[in-house]
Amino acid sequence: MSLSFTRLTPALGALVQGIDLSRPMSADEQQEIRQALILHQVLFFRDQNISPIQQRDFAARFGDLHTHPIYPQHPEASQILVLDTEAHDLKDNAIWHTDVTFSETPPLGAVLAARQLPENGGDTLWASSFAAYDALSDRLRILLEGLTATHDFTKTFPLKRFGLTAADRQRWNETRLNNPPLSHPVVRTHPESGRKGLFVNEGFTTEINELPEEEGKALLNFLFAHQSRPEFSVRWRWALGDVAFWDNRSTSHYAVDDYRPARRVMHRATILGDKPY
């Protein structure tokens, strides 16, 4: 059965059919999926019965994998981080964010698998940074060119919430030492497509470096709100067996926190990326 890609919204997202992710991919399948990821920015696969090891191996076909410094790892595959609402309060994922932009080389992408879901709720939204950038006025795009912004690990992972035990505090301090605040361009050029997109996010971006504090704050607040407009996004209602694969270089996402006290467990493999420019 050949691969097919069905576009979900004008901005981004496609449903992929014709592949079993529990089986090794051919080189042709891998290339088709990579090209579709660049084009559609987030890909969805239904009815996939994959183990954590198979999820890891699928993600590793697209690059070396990242090990998250804070979230726990799966015992069978250390490259799989476990997002379990019974173990951690994940309310910080209920904002628009791009993963690990506090790193000098933020991830290329991520593969997320649904393991346990609430009866209702728990959807995830993705937004296209390309669509958001393209919708800006010419004058504002000119202003943004050449600006850089600071990204800080502590904005989403404050010590008061992620340093509750001695071991947690030690892990947090080591992560802070290894990940000091750093700067990325406000407008990023995608290294494979050449398209430009906004590269600031509410999860980790704290200031625009070249502007006075109040001006930078006002501009960031506008860009955060602008990126979240519904016409730039796709919303996915999870079912068990679903897998999502997104391009972290050109998207942000929002995990809707509307299902408490039900439990939600997701597994994520994160693919290492390169330095934004």
Rank of each mutant, 00 (worst) to 15 (best):
A127P: 08
R139Q: 08
T124E: 09
N120D: 02
T67N: 09
G121Y: 00
P106R: 05
V111S: 11
P69C: 03
P69I: 04
H88A: 15
D89P: 10
Y133H: 14
H66P: 05
D84C: 08
L81H: 08
E104G: 10
D92C: 12
P75V: 15
T85L: 04
Q116I: 06
R46S: 14
L81N: 12
D89E: 13
P72K: 11
D134A: 15
R56G: 08
E76N: 04
H97F: 12
P69Q: 06
I38F: 12
S78P: 10
E119M: 13
A110H: 03
S129W: 00
N120Y: 01
L136M: 03
T105L: 01
E119G: 12
H68F: 03
L140S: 09
L143N: 12
E119S: 15
D57P: 01
D99R: 09
R115T: 02
E104D: 12
Q48E: 09
R56K: 13
D64M: 07
Q79I: 00
H40A: 04
L39M: 02
E119K: 13
W126N: 01
A59D: 14
Q30M: 13
Q79E: 15
D57A: 12
D84Y: 10
I95M: 05
H88K: 15
R56S: 08
N49Y: 07
Q116K: 13
R56P: 00
V82D: 00
S137G: 04
L90V: 09
A94D: 15
Y133D: 02
D138N: 13
A110Y: 02
E119H: 11
T101L: 05
A113T: 11
L125W: 05
Y71S: 11
A114D: 04
L43D: 04
L43G: 06
A59L: 05
H68P: 02
Y71N: 12
Q35T: 13
A36S: 07
P75N: 12
L143C: 11
S51L: 11
L81K: 06
L143F: 09
A87G: 09
G109V: 01
L125M: 14
A110F: 00
T101C: 05
I33K: 03
Q79Y: 12
R141V: 01
D99V: 06
L90R: 05
V42A: 09
L112K: 04
A114S: 11
I80D: 02
D123E: 13
A87I: 13
T101K: 02
L37E: 02
G63Q: 07
D47A: 14
G121V: 02
Q79V: 12
I70V: 12
W126D: 04
Q55H: 15
V82L: 01
S51R: 06
D138A: 15
A36D: 02
S129G: 08
H74A: 14
H74E: 11
R141F: 03
Y71H: 14
A127K: 04
V111E: 03
P52C: 05
Q41T: 01
G122I: 08
T105Y: 00
P69Y: 06
A94I: 07
L125E: 07
V100N: 13
R139K: 04
W126E: 04
K91N: 12
W126I: 04
L108K: 06
E104P: 02
A132M: 10
N120R: 05
H68S: 07
